[in-house]
Simulated assay, not measured.
Amino acid sequence: MNNNPITNFTYLIENDYSNIAGIAISKNGSMVFEQYFHEYTKDDALHVASVTKSIVSALIGIAVDKGYVKNIEQKVLEFFPDYTIKRGEKTIQNVTIKNLLTMTAPFKYKSEPYTKVYSSDDWVKAALDLLGGKSDIGEFKYTTVGINILSGILTNATGQSVINFATENLFKPLGIKEPNNAFIQNKEDYLAFLKDKYVTGWMADPKGVNTAGWGLTLTLRDMMKIGQLYLNGGLWDGKQILSSKWIDDSTSEKSRWGELSYGYLWWIVDDGYAALGDGGNIIFINPKKKIVVTIASRFMPRAKDRIELIRKHIMPLFDRIV
């Protein structure tokens, strides 16, 4: 260790955070730190896990902005006219898009049936089959498989695949390379996707519908662009990509899980908000200080808390930089 705080910070990451692939930090729209670790480079994409949820939140916002979706109070089943409700099932009829965005939709399971859903031919239908039950609408229930219903809504509302809609309306305007569809055939493929050092694409079901709760790969710079877009109120190169109202609504408290606040598939933390993904992937935005922090990480169980890393080490160090 030495007297250079940046060098000390880099040493900390290299030695105490073995799965971090890269960290980028911007302030006032300018990159003040960008470094890669463990042989990763700026061109390498990683699976960002549940950060995918926050990207899909942006896509729902764009669909609302463009009129494909009237509003998020619309009932989920309006987008699936051919879906047959099970006999005696009533709760599902009242679930709205907003319930999915705020994790307040009820589901018929205690623990998420990943294998059951991802071994089916239609992951959206499998998620719809799990929607409803005896729980009350409005209670916070975090779900990954259930959020796949939003992919079905985007597909049916826009008439485009999720990947094409995202490319046309979000990725291409931001200069993010269009991902390819990625597929899994079995549990081994799924585990390989999570654990492989180099992965690309956006996971899709056998029908080609991309996942909404996980499965997207992005580079560190891609993540930074998403964060900067939100910090800019949806404006990019003079063009309004996403309405500022949607961003404000998405990043203010709409539901709670214990002491944690939740917006529209964004977590509300400290003086800002964050997209959080398993393994320690994060897009963190502090609007007051105009700071964006992005961390790309390889999957590992029980990764060290990135919010704590930002709070204890990153903000005190980079907040002083003009």
Score class of each variant (00 low, 15 high):
97 I>K: 01
92 I>P: 00
75 K>S: 07
102 T>E: 09
83 Y>V: 06
75 K>C: 04
88 G>R: 12
76 V>W: 02
80 F>H: 01
83 Y>R: 07
87 R>Q: 15
66 K>N: 13
69 V>S: 03
73 E>I: 12
104 T>R: 06
92 I>E: 04
63 A>C: 09
112 E>D: 14
80 F>N: 04
80 F>C: 03
78 E>G: 02
88 G>T: 07
112 E>C: 06
76 V>K: 04
71 N>Q: 12
113 P>K: 10
93 Q>I: 13
94 N>A: 09
74 Q>K: 13
88 G>Y: 08
84 T>C: 05
69 V>K: 00
91 T>P: 03
102 T>I: 10
85 I>V: 15
100 L>K: 02
86 K>M: 10
88 G>Q: 09
107 F>C: 11
85 I>S: 09
66 K>C: 10
87 R>V: 11
104 T>I: 08
113 P>H: 11
80 F>V: 01
66 K>M: 13
96 T>G: 01
75 K>E: 05
98 K>A: 13
78 E>D: 14
106 P>A: 12
88 G>H: 13
104 T>Y: 04
90 K>R: 12
79 F>D: 01
103 M>H: 10
66 K>A: 09
106 P>F: 06
74 Q>A: 09
75 K>W: 06
87 R>A: 14
109 Y>R: 14
64 V>Q: 01
91 T>H: 08
97 I>Q: 01
80 F>D: 00
97 I>L: 13
87 R>G: 06
101 L>F: 07
95 V>S: 01
91 T>E: 11
111 S>T: 12
83 Y>I: 05
74 Q>L: 13
65 D>P: 05
64 V>H: 03
75 K>V: 04
80 F>L: 03
72 I>F: 08
74 Q>P: 02
85 I>C: 11
82 D>A: 14
88 G>D: 06
81 P>A: 08
71 N>V: 11
73 E>C: 12
79 F>E: 01
83 Y>M: 06
105 A>M: 09
80 F>P: 00
66 K>Q: 15
109 Y>V: 10
